[in-house]
Design a protein around this nucleic acid. Structure first.
Lengths: 167, 167
DNA sequence: TGTTACTTGTTATAACATAACATATGCACC
DNA sequence: GGTGCATATGTTATGTTATAACAAGTAACA
């Protein structure tokens, strides 16, 4: 909603940006992708994705569960895990191993390798492209005869705002 | 112990190698490092490290705990977690986020950035250098004003033996 | 309309991890 | 050698994350 927002694509989470736009575009992309794959975007799944999208951060499965329960869905862990697993499996969300948590994917369907920058100050999680890293990783692995299928790349550190606040 | 083993340094786990040599060198390196830092390599800690070193794989904290208990140490989770946390904190072991597990570091004290190749067939975990990747990661993060302190880089896939077995 | 595949919900339990506190040990210093 | 402090070990108890197994409901389609 700010004049400084660029017209297309989601901004990295640490940069001031039009968050409403992120959400809309990610949600629309997700709907398209699901339809294209012949999957079903059911109410729990859609709501789980919306919940993740509401913030640029990761949420634990039990936090998502609580929100879902408040909205009238089931109260038991599998309700959240199943919705989240669906989102992750189809590239609509990512799992952040480091935090035992989940974050919405900001550009679903674009078949990308993601890496994450996790700020230990404000707990914001930024999704960035890992494509440049994957080349080196695949190459190094191949030299040992290992074929990489999926990679987890997560960096812990401080965003500029938190670094300044700490100084 | 085999004639094909090179004279120095541990071999990547997927390559046939002198495992006894890995263990000896990692253990010796750990002892040196601990002494140099003025820390205490107590019996539980040493034993925990030995247990991890016995295999080129990752072990869950509860597996390590069971082994420790069999050796006369305490039976409660903190016994294992404390020893493992000590090892990780001082660079003698690594945590494998993906598996909620721990693996001994094969070259302690060398101040390195590690990445891991995890075979989903045989569950072997190979530690490789992430130094080349860290350059690109730090650079990409810096462009967003983010400073990386620690990075988790874990690749899931198949080692050559398991890939051949599957084919 | 019946069949099939899938989705949701439940109960119960498994697996992973830490808080808080008591006891014991190592070690520097007098 | 004793005293005092920091560190280490062990315990109980609990918190957090994740899955297995099964029953009931719903969509798609011949």
């Amino acid at each position: 909603m700010t004049a400084s927002s660029p017209p297309t694509g989601p901004e990295p989470a640490f940069v001031p940006h039009d968050h409403h736009h992120c959400v809309e575009s990610a949600l629309a992309g997700a709907e398209d992708l699901v339809r294209a794959k012949g999957l079903r975007m059911t109410p729990v799944r859609r709501r789980a994705l919306e919940i993740l999208l509401e913030r640029h951060g990761a949420m634990g499965a039990y936090d998502v569960l609580q929100r879902l329960a408040e909205d009238g869905f089931g109260h038991q862990p599998p309700v959240a895990y199943r919705a989240l697993d669906f989102l992750v499996e189809h590239g609509l969300a990512h799992r952040i191993q480091r935090l035992n948590a989940f974050a919405a994917c900001l550009h679903p369907g674009e078949d990308h390798h993601a890496a994450f920058l996790i700020c230990r100050g404000c707990h914001t999680v930024a999704e960035v492209s890992a494509d440049p890293l994957r080349g080196a990783l695949d190459e190094g692995a191949a030299a040992l005869g290992f074929s990489v299928e999926r990679a987890t790349i997560e960096a812990m550190g401080l965003c500029s705002a938190c670094r300044e606040a700490a100084a």
